[in-house]
Design a protein around this nucleic acid. Structure first.
Length: 158
DNA sequence: GCCAACGTTGGC
DNA sequence: GCCAACGTTGGC
């Protein structure tokens, strides 16, 4: 069992958007970075857990918890000419880009990036390192437990 | 909107 | 295979 942090722009898909979807599950499409793709392909497993991180927004931070709900499979948007994620160089016989499905587990009271930075226990958290742009990063078991037990507060609205 | 960091592309 | 140019990310 591994732990991850996955970034999403809430304008595209927020934790609330995810929780309102049928089956509360979404394909994590649009990853166009080889390192992030390789994490999905090689290291992620169905059943792994991930923090759902809101990026490029007014208050970036961890907004909830999700579970990996499928193995990696070809990202359909790479073959969709109408999609902003269309990749004309990807060969359908050998798809370049993959995605996993992600299922909603829990919404938190937002844990802002500035709050995460305050804790020495999280000094090595990947998303806090300077200029980290990877949309999928591993979280160590210690970091996971610290965030979940010390910082996360369930946010129960409808 | 700025800008630093960094990944990707493509000419050579 | 080098490396400059360019595009993207994402916090501020």
């Amino acid at each position: 069992m591994r732990y991850w942090l996955m970034k999403s722009e809430p304008a595209d898909c927020s934790i609330d958007d995810l929780s309102r979807l049928p089956d509360q599950t979404v394909a994590w499409y649009g990853v166009r970075n080889y390192q992030a793709r390789n994490f999905m392909r090689d290291t992620m497993r169905e059943g792994d857990e991930a923090f759902f991180y809101h990026s490029s927004c007014a208050i970036p931070g961890i907004a909830g918890r999700v579970r990996i709900a499928s193995p990696a499979y070809p990202d359909a948007t790479q073959f969709d000419a109408a999609s902003r994620f269309f990749d004309p160089k990807s060969d359908p016989a050998q798809p370049r880009w993959l995605n996993v499905d992600v299922r909603f587990e829990e919404k938190f009271v937002l844990i802002p990036l500035t709050e995460l930075r305050r804790h020495p226990e999280l000094a090595t958290l990947r998303v806090l390192q300077p200029a980290n742009r990877l949309s999928i990063t591993p979280v160590s078991p210690d970091e996971w437990q610290f965030i979940l037990k010390r910082l996360a507060v369930p946010h129960n609205d409808n």
